[in-house]
């Protein structure tokens, strides 16, 4: 047995265990939606990414090799790659159609956001360079360990800390511009 807390569930899913599938969806689907939303700033796109990541997990489960990687880290990598695919396509569309207008922020009519603070945080995240955003999302919002995040991003721990520090400085600057009464530079 490895130190992967999801290992047993994944192996059971691979054998077609319906209860294990429900448990894995309950634990991971909201987590993947949060990850993708923080990266993309779009709930519909986030749900699409989370769905695709879980479908890939279903394909992988029957052949899952314990000890090769923690399932949660593997699933994050799949979802992050899907997010980058979408960000790349979004850049291509924008460069073809709206070269002067780039806004990765959430649309104002997303009903589930009912607080300005949530929109401001998402706008500040969207304003970060993608790698800094990824580092902050993985370590702060998804609470991956530094080792897991560095491995997932294929960088050293020192490089991860540099991305995180620059990301947090960027967030502080952006949020102090958006809400100067609430947060100082």
């Amino acid at each position: 047995m490895t130190n992967d807390p999801d290992e047993d569930l994944v192996l059971r899913v691979g054998r077609g265990d319906a209860a294990a599938a429900r448990a894995l969806v309950a634990g991971k689907l909201p987590r993947m939606v949060r990850l993708a939303y923080r990266m993309l700033g779009d709930l519909q796109a986030a749900e699409d990414v989370a769905q695709e990541a879980m479908l890939r997990a279903w394909k992988q489960a029957p052949a899952w090799q314990p000890g090769a990687a923690r399932f949660d880290t593997w699933l994050h990598r799949v979802a992050i790659n899907l997010c980058y695919d979408r960000l790349r396509r979004r850049r291509e569309v924008l460069s073809d159609t709206l070269p002067e207008q780039v806004d990765d922020g959430p649309s104002p009519d997303q009903g589930w956001i009912d607080r300005d603070q949530s929109r401001q945080v998402q706008a500040a995240l969207a304003a970060l360079p993608e790698r800094q955003r990824e580092a902050v999302v993985l370590c702060h919002f998804q609470e991956l360990s530094q080792t897991e995040a560095a491995e997932l991003m294929s960088v050293s721990v020192e490089a991860l800390e540099s991305l995180l520090a620059r990301g947090r400085r960027g967030l502080r600057t952006a949020l102090s511009d958006l809400a100067p009464e609430r947060i100082g530079r």
Binding site: V13, G14, R15, G16, A18, A21, R22, V25, A26, L29, P30, V33, R34, Y37, L43, A46, E47, A50, Q51, M54, L55, W58, A61, P62, W112, I113, D114, R115, Q117, S118, V121, Q122, H140, F141, R168, L171, R172, L175, R182, I183, G184
Partner: peptide, 27 residues
């Protein structure tokens, strides 16, 4: 101060339909 600001942001809630679609495709 910055942490508190970030942590106060609401988490998106996936729709029930999304979980249904994913479960339907489970092994």
């Amino acid at each position: 101060e910055l942490d508190a600001w970030l942590d106060a942001a609401l988490d998106p809630v996936p729709s029930d339909l999304l979980a249904h679609r994913v479960l339907k495709a489970a092994p």
